[in-house]
C-alpha cells in the first residue's frame, strides 16, 4: 500500500472507528426489534399504516410494508436512517481528505513531499474509499446476520444489492465533499454542498414519486439511482448503480484537475 494511503487511513482512524460503532449499534438495535414489530400487525401492519398519506410514508423511509422482512429492512437500514447516518459519516470523512488538513495547516508539509498533486488527492481519496468500504462490509455482515437470525426471509443477494447501492450512494456524497474541498479548500462549504444535495436529493426522490411538480428533478438526485430500482425487493438495479459509479468517477477526475490548478492554503 502506498505510504500516503496508509498514512491517510491513520489520519481518518479516529472518525472511522466512531462511525463504524455508531452505525453498527444503530443497525443492531433497530433490527433487533423486528420480532416485536412483526408480532404486532395491528399497530404496524399495512392496514394500520394505510391512514398515513403515501408521500409521507415515503419520506419517512417507505413504510409501505413494515411487517415484512424486506419492508422493514428497507425502512430502517436502506431508505432513511441507514443512508442518513452513513452519508453524514462519508461527508465528515470526505472533509478530512483535503479541506480540514488544509484549513488546519497540516496539508502544507504533505504538499511539499515528492508526490504530485493529482496523486496526492487520489491516494487520500483511496483511503477514504477504503474506509467507507470497511464500514459497508462490517454493517453488511451485521444486517445479513440479523436478517438470517430473525428469519426476515429476504434473499441474500438482495441484501448484497441494497448494501452495494448504499455504499455507492455514500461514496458519491463523500466524493462531492472531496471535489468541493479540492476546488475551494473550504471545509464548511464542501460539507454544506454535499449535505444540501443529500437532503434535497432524498426529499425530491421520495416525495417526487407522488408529487408531479418536483418529479422531473429526480434525475438530479443520487437517491433516485439507488432507490428507484428497489434493490431489496428486486436485486441489483445495474443501470442506476453504473450512473452513481460513473458520476463518482467524473467528480473524482474533476477534483484532481481542480486541486492541481490552485494555490493551497491561502
Amino acid at each position: 500500500m502506498p505510504a500516503l494511503v496508509s498514512k491517510s487511513l491513520r489520519d481518518y482512524r479516529r472518525g472511522l472507528i466512531g462511525w463504524t460503532l455508531g452505525i453498527g449499534v444503530f443497525m443492531l438495535v433497530y433490527l433487533s426489534v423486528y420480532s416485536s414489530i412483526v408480532a404486532d400487525p395491528d399497530t404496524y401492519g399495512p392496514a394500520a399504516l394505510a391512514k398515513f398519506p403515501g408521500p409521507l410514508k415515503d419520506l419517512m423511509g417507505g413504510l409501505d410494508n413494515f411487517t415484512s422482512g424486506a419492508g422493514y429492512l428497507q425502512a430502517v437500514a436502506y431508505q432513511m436512517f441507514g443512508p442518513l447516518l452513513f452519508t453524514m459519516c462519508a461527508v465528515t470523512l470526505g472533509s478530512q481528505v483535503i479541506a480540514q488538513p488544509e484549513e488546519r495547516g497540516t496539508l502544507e508539509l504533505t504538499l511539499t513531499l515528492p508526490i504530485d498533486r493529482r496523486r496526492l488527492l487520489l491516494e487520500r481519496f483511496a483511503a477514504l474509499a477504503l474506509s467507507l468500504l470497511g464500514i459497508a462490509l462490517i454493517t453488511f455482515v451485521l444486517v445479513a446476520g440479523m436478517a438470517s437470525a430473525l428469519d426476515m426471509g429476504v434473499p441474500f443477494v438482495n441484501i448484497v444489492a441494497a448494501h452495494t447501492g448504499l455504499f455507492l450512494l455514500v461514496l458519491f456524497f463523500g466524493t462531492v465533499t472531496v471535489t468541493v474541498s479540492a476546488a475551494t479548500g473550504r471545509k464548511s462549504l464542501s460539507m454544506g454542498v454535499a449535505g444540501a444535495w443529500a437532503v434535497g436529493g432524498y426529499v425530491v426522490e421520495t416525495l417526487g414519486r407522488d408529487v408531479a411538480a418536483i418529479s422531473w428533478l429526480r434525475w438530479l438526485s443520487p437517491f433516485h439511482y439507488y432507490l428507484d430500482g428497489r434493490p431489496i425487493y428486486q436485486g441489483f438495479p445495474t443501470g442506476g448503480y453504473l450512473v452513481l459509479a460513473g458520476a463518482t468517477i467524473v467528480l473524482l477526475l474533476t477534483a484532481m484537475l481542480a486541486f492541481d490548478r490552485r494555490d493551497v492554503g491561502v
Binding site: 491513520r10 489520519d11 495547516g105 497540516t106 511539499t112 515528492p114 508526490i115 496523486r119
Partner: peptide, 21 residues
C-alpha cells in the same frame, strides 16, 4: 515537477502537527 521535492528539505513558517500519531 514533484520529484525535485525529494531533494529539498522544508520547514514551514508555521508548522502544524496534530493527531495521536
Amino acid at each position: 515537477d514533484a520529484s525535485v521535492r525529494s531533494r529539498i528539505g522544508y520547514l514551514p513558517g508555521e508548522l502544524f502537527l496534530e493527531g495521536r500519531e
